[in-house]
Amino acid sequence: MRIGKEKVSRISLAPVMLALSLAAGNFALTPSAYALSELHKIPGQPNDQPAQGSAQGQSQPQGGTTPGVPMADPLVNSQNSQGVDKTPGTQDNSKPVEVIYDISKAPEPVRKMRQQIVEAAASGDLERLRPLMGTGAEQTQVTVGEPTEDPIGTLKDLSGDPDGDEILAIMLDIVSTGFVHVGQGTADDMYVWPYFAEKDLKSLTPPERVELLRIVTAGDLSDMQEFGGYNFYRLGITPDGKWKFFTAGD
């Protein structure tokens, strides 16, 4: 999974590094590879806007996990910005949120949708996600900005392999982490995975860093810390069980 992302990263950074080297009179080219640089492929995704997140109060892992898949869901909270499309799930992160590992604390519709996503992704058949994504205004968002007519086709295009296996593996990794419940009592009420989008990545504990490195590479983590927050994939489910988004960005 990471090999595919780093390959894209090397390609996308090469023109920029070459231009800088020539301007300095130095013809040596030394591009650095960060797997998250592949996110430039997402239509409408702003790649230069900093994001930040913070969260406090993490509960200990408990029972209720899905066999073979670690439990948890975080959410995406980033700074509000005017005139720029925001990644679904981002919100005001000035208030601390609780990281939850016990899926039984989520409403039954949320638990059911998460389980269906896990089963579909684990099957290796991208098409099994389609019935879970809804249609029209209720369709699951997979890109930032304008909705796509074919979310499954878009996910396949974003994957590092022709069959979409990589994106399914990423999806499983995402819903296997701790999660957060945000926007209670508002139209943005949501259960979001992973919780890292709500955390200050520079303050992660050693166990939290290990958990994040199950999703991204060490280079990605370093890049995120410099960037100001988690900017990889995140997944959101509404309290009534609608799969709202699976997107990447800040």
Rank of each mutant, 00 (worst) to 15 (best):
M1F: 12
E6S: 13
V8L: 14
A14I: 10
P15F: 11
N26M: 09
N26Q: 14
A28V: 10
L29F: 11
S32W: 12
A33H: 08
A35P: 01
A35G: 15
L36T: 04
P46G: 06
N47G: 11
N47Q: 12
G53F: 04
A55K: 00
A55C: 12
Q62V: 10
Q62T: 14
G68C: 07
G68W: 06
D73C: 12
V76D: 06
S81R: 14
G83S: 08
G83Y: 07
D85I: 07
T87F: 00
T90C: 11
N93D: 13
P96W: 02
I100D: 02
P109Q: 09
V110G: 01
R111K: 11
Q116R: 13
E119R: 09
A120Q: 06
A121K: 05
G124Q: 10
L126H: 03
R128L: 12
R128K: 15
R130C: 06
L132D: 04
G134S: 06
E138S: 13
E138V: 08
Q139P: 02
T143P: 00
V144Y: 01
E146N: 13
K156M: 13
D161W: 03
P162S: 06
A169L: 13
V175C: 02
G178V: 00
G185T: 06
D189G: 04
K199C: 12
K202Y: 04
S203F: 05
S203T: 14
L204H: 05
P206N: 10
R209N: 04
E211C: 01
L213S: 07
L213C: 04
I215M: 11
G219I: 04
L221F: 05
L221R: 01
Q225D: 05
Q225I: 06
F227S: 02
F227P: 00
P239C: 13
K242W: 08
T247G: 08
G249C: 03
